[in-house]
Design a protein around this nucleic acid. Structure first.
Lengths: 383, 383
DNA sequence: CTGAAAGCGCTTACAG
DNA sequence: CTGAAAGCGCTTACAG
């Protein structure tokens, strides 16, 4: 590719000055139609595109928003991305998407991002010192930060009220032996130096290919029930090996207020197949469970399937509840009851907040600005 | 927010020249440690961040990729976004995400994008003249363009081989009366001037709130079975009112090769609830159907649920197949068989293609560069 | 190790 | 209606 044409090339080709080119390209007044056409023709022939750098240097309105997500293939996050791009577009901002799944080095990737954008929203999760150095001079709104104090601003989640509603509902339905299908809490650097992630990513198993089938057909065998795969058997909530997630803790606390206890099993092998096997084993180990709360909706769908495999009726014999509120829960039978979080609202609030900070309407000094979003108990059919 | 600090402010504060500031900020050699520290301290105190425009004007490596998607909340697209951001990041590129869901004016939004990026991937779907004007001088790779000829490059989908495999499989299982649950084909401007979309977006029904429940709890009633909601009753494939989608046409053609016909119903009210009602009505109108191919996996999940509501066993009495290959199909019971498209591969190929074009390795003149991705028949449990 | 000069591509006053 | 001049913030040679 040759050197791209500049405003000087177009001016020379059209036989005019540079600012006449500017006038033509930007549909400004004070230019004769003939001149304008001549310039536009020359621009087209040269494939001229005004440099965003030349323009940016001289115009003041910089509107590039960075969005930091952990994993776009988790169906929970695209709703956030969709809401942020929507709210940003309405304000004339563009969104640079950074998916940390692929980041060998979180800090380097975010340092690069910091050079490209004028504001940041997302799962930043950096050491505070590093964050303030990297993003010096631009507003940052963190989503669901687990560190106590966000640096500048944050949208936080509040699961407890919905959990309280859930426990009241379950108790009212006569539930006595709830089970929590928990996931390993995701470690993250907090109040200290960056450390490498402890999460193992287990690659998905390749689809199995039958020998005597057409080459393009994949026949995927139903996974065998696997025993003891990262599975803790029947332990009271607080002594189960593996730290309980924040979600599990809140569930346990709210159960406790009503004199109920729950067993807890940990699932989260990183592969769908492994998770399903672990869920099956968990249910076999806890045949007395009359309700299951899953760490998220995806796992809850796995629970639904495993219960059906075992001939257990939902919700008559076992109630099943997820967390997240994915719309997919609407499509299965029985439809999944869940503690739903409105990620579209999260995205909208975060965008308003960060753009307000950028515009100077929300102070950057003083206590961090916060917006809180509550989960809601969404009762469909499974509980 | 005050005027951001520039390199001159930092130079003045540190008592050095501008290029010494450059040396310190970019960790370049030829600067004494003391001077560097003094500069960095001044930069931090002033919250100095080098302007990307000043830098961009003088450095040559511009690496901003535009990604155009139709709707991020459709679980099919985030996989593409994830693959593109991953492949782009590996090459040192950032990705600007543009979700057309929110676009009042497709052309304006893309014109803005064209000013911000150095290459474009996605569902561009503009009139060719407009596209070539808007994106003059930058490579564009279109995803699944329906116009015959992409302008510069494209990744296209090929559903036919997998469909052929599917029909062979269904026929082998003794299927005689297949039903296609089709969707209104999405209109798009092709080979002509831009025209407004004909798709009506029906807003989702608000969750119904019971009067005497805690305020945060939503009790969502199961939708009634609705009769005749945008539903075509038992018509042969080609005369059904409403144009068949490309997917339906291929299905019909492949069935025809084996002497089979299918009935076709159209679903696609824009709301999950409406779709579910229409699916139910469709199944009631076609009790003889022994196989259902749905326009996509989401609808196929609806079919699965509706069949269960009616006490029909899958796959024993009715086979069900979707299109897309969403991983969610792995989690339901019975697991959904589907014609799967590897969107991660699509994203990877598109990124390689557009970056190759940008680097001059793939010519921009001459015939458009193409990459083809085939669907694959993925047999799980439902067929 | 440090700085004076030039220039990247554009737009904004200002003059004619 | 059109153009000569200045300047946005940075980096790259080049001198010292």
């Amino acid at each position: 590719m040759r050197r791209p044409a500049t405003i000087n090339d177009v001016a020379a080709a059209a036989g005019v000055s540079r600012q006449t080119v500017t006038r033509a390209m930007n549909a400004m007044p004070g230019i004769s139609p003939e001149t304008r056409d001549r310039v536009l023709v020359a621009a087209r022939e040269l494939s001229y595109r005004p440099s965003r750098f030349g323009r940016g240097l001289v115009k003041a309105d910089h509107r590039m928003l960075g969005l930091v997500l952990d994993d776009l293939t988790n169906p929970f996050y695209p709703q956030l991305a969709s809401a942020v791009t929507g709210a940003a577009a309405a304000a004339g901002w563009n969104v640079v998407l950074t998916d940390m799944t692929h980041a060998a080095d979180r800090e380097t990737l975010l340092a690069d991002l910091a050079h490209q954008v004028d504001a940041v929203i997302g799962y930043v999760r950096l050491d505070p010192d590093i964050q303030s150095r990297l993003f010096a001079g631009i507003p940052v709104v963190e989503i669901d930060p687990t560190r106590r104090q966000p640096l500048l601003g944050a949208v936080t989640f509040d699961l407890r009220p919905a959990m309280r509603d859930l426990v009241r509902h379950l108790a009212g339905q006569g539930v006595r032996r709830p089970l929590m299908v928990d996931q390993v809490p995701r470690p993250e650097p907090v109040e200290g130096p960056d450390r490498p992630s402890e999460v193992d990513r287990v690659p998905r198993p390749e689809p199995v290919e039958g020998p005597d089938r057409p080459s393009e057909v994949d026949r995927v065998p139903r996974p065998e029930r696997v025993e003891g795969q990262r599975l803790d058997r029947a332990q009271p909530a607080y002594v189960s090996p593996g730290r309980p997630s924040g979600r599990a803790k809140i569930f346990a606390t709210e159960l406790d207020r009503r004199g109920l206890e729950c067993d807890r099993v940990i699932v989260g092998t990183g592969s769908t197949e492994g998770d399903l096997a672990a869920i099956g084993a968990a249910l076999d180990a806890h045949p007395e469970a009359d309700a299951v709360l899953a760490y998220n909706d995806l796992l809850a769908l796995g629970v639904l399937g495993a219960l059906r495999d075992r001939g257990r009726r939902v919700p008559a014999e076992v109630k099943v509840v997820g967390i997240d509120g994915l719309s997919i829960g609407e499509l299965v039978v029985p439809r999944l009851s869940t503690l739903a979080l409105d990620m579209a609202e999260v995205g909208r609030l975060a965008t308003e907040l960060v753009l307000g900070m950028r515009a100077g309407e929300i102070p950057l000094s003083g206590p961090p600005a916060r917006r809180k979003v509550r989960h809601r108990l969404l009762l469909r059919d499974s509980a």
